[in-house]
Design a binder for these strands. Structure first.
Lengths: 224, 224
DNA sequence: GCGACTTGTGTGACCTTATCACTGAGAGAT
DNA sequence: ATCTCTCAGTGATAAGGTCACACAAGTCGC
């Protein structure tokens, strides 16, 4: 039995899995289709499955008791969920929550099979670890931005980055607050200030960038 | 040629490396001895070596432009430096700095050999990734503590944890600030408040815990 | 159309935390 | 003793987060 085509397309490295145990395990990966806005896992959940996303966006956010949110990272297109991997390896509960942002196609591998694969299939093990690396250093950068950087700089930088191609951003203030780990009111006030300076215009659910240049200058002052 | 004894003692998993490429690579690991307080790597440095610590403590801290510090994690005893691993995998520069806290014994493996090992030695690859896991979810918890939690709760919790066995903690306020990613003055004021409540007594470079109970209660209120 | 709801935004008051610019108290060296 | 560190205390000010609202713009049912 061959592996599903979208799994191979998304993860070329899977094609290199040759040993029978690894192949058998992958055949048991269950295809999932999730609508946008679906909660994939919650804070405190145990990890029951290894997740391979083949299409769509999933955001992983932290949430405070009072509802404040903070985007930790995002899976966009093909990728495995590193947090899931980390929790499975360390037998920990999820310290954050995962939410689909678009419709998502994914494959789920039950924990028992995941463990069996790690133990018995060298090819599978290599696959898991090779897709696992690298996120750590970007998280460390995030920690420092949150701990040390001014919110106006972070906001300006985010806007510059997002507006690089388009002029109008369809985002609510709450979206921005979540993205930057701040509070909605704070973002509103900063945007208002940017508008007062003539850098952009605010509408309901939209931000019209009028002049990227001063925004870019502001953002790169005291760059990290 | 056998591998050095302390390397095997520290990392039993290394003994399972059998293939000739892996063995050859490990034989080229260079032993290092570093004194306490030595900078191992700086923000922006390129990663030149894979690091295996066999003895001592290394702290990895972020640093703001104004000098404020934040402890990201610590290697205590035997361990590999996950940040180094992440940077090597992603070809990134160090986003933080590493400093020895005690005298440290370690082995360094040049980047070229590290890559060769990953490519050509399945046993070495497994070793690297097995020691890599798990730190991600603790980092995510850290991000959220910094973003969402009050400094007085975090301080109380830290003190309770550290004071579990001893009654007197030999720490400066600056040490605590670094550990928690706050400012020295803030910690001083909070400690003063705790002292006012009769929970502890402050001395120069020391904190004498008088009564753990109310401190513990305070810490667990609104626990994360 | 009209009203009920929901969602997004604006605002003032207040609190916590960070920053800055100091002061002064140990503690060791000469 | 005096100098020089390091460590701690303090007041003023600013940034950012929290709370409690008001209000405007859509959406839905009718």
């Amino acid at each position: 039995m061959a592996l599903p085509g979208d799994l191979i397309n998304g993860f070329p490295a899977l094609a290199s899995i040759q040993d029978p145990v690894g192949l058998d395990i992958l055949r048991h990966a269950q295809p999932l289709s999730l609508p946008a806005g679906q909660v994939v896992f919650r804070l405190g959940d145990t990890c029951a499955h290894y997740l391979l996303v083949t299409e769509g966006k999933v955001k992983v956010v932290g949430r405070a008791l009072n509802g404040r949110e903070l985007l930790l990272y995002r899976i966009d297109g093909c990728g495995t969920c590193v947090l899931t991997t980390s929790c499975l390896l360390g037998q920990k509960r999820y310290p954050a929550e995962g939410i689909t942002e678009t419709a998502v196609s994914a494959y789920a591998l039950p924990q028992a099979l995941f463990r069996q694969g790690l133990d018995q299939s060298p090819d599978f093990r290599n696959f898991v670890f090779n897709t696992y690396g690298q996120r750590l250093s970007s998280l460390i950068t995030l920690v420092q931005e949150i701990a040390f950087e001014r919110i106006d700089l972070r906001l300006a930088r985010y806007l510059v980055e997002k507006a690089a191609d388009r002029v109008e951003l369809l985002l609510t203030h709450q979206d921005l607050a979540t993205e930057l780990g701040s509070a909605r009111e704070v973002i509103s006030r900063q945007l208002k200030e940017f508008e007062r300076r003539g850098w952009l215009h605010l509408g309901r659910g939209s931000i019209q960038i009028d002049d990227l240049t001063p925004l870019r200058e502001f953002a790169s002052a005291h760059a990290f």
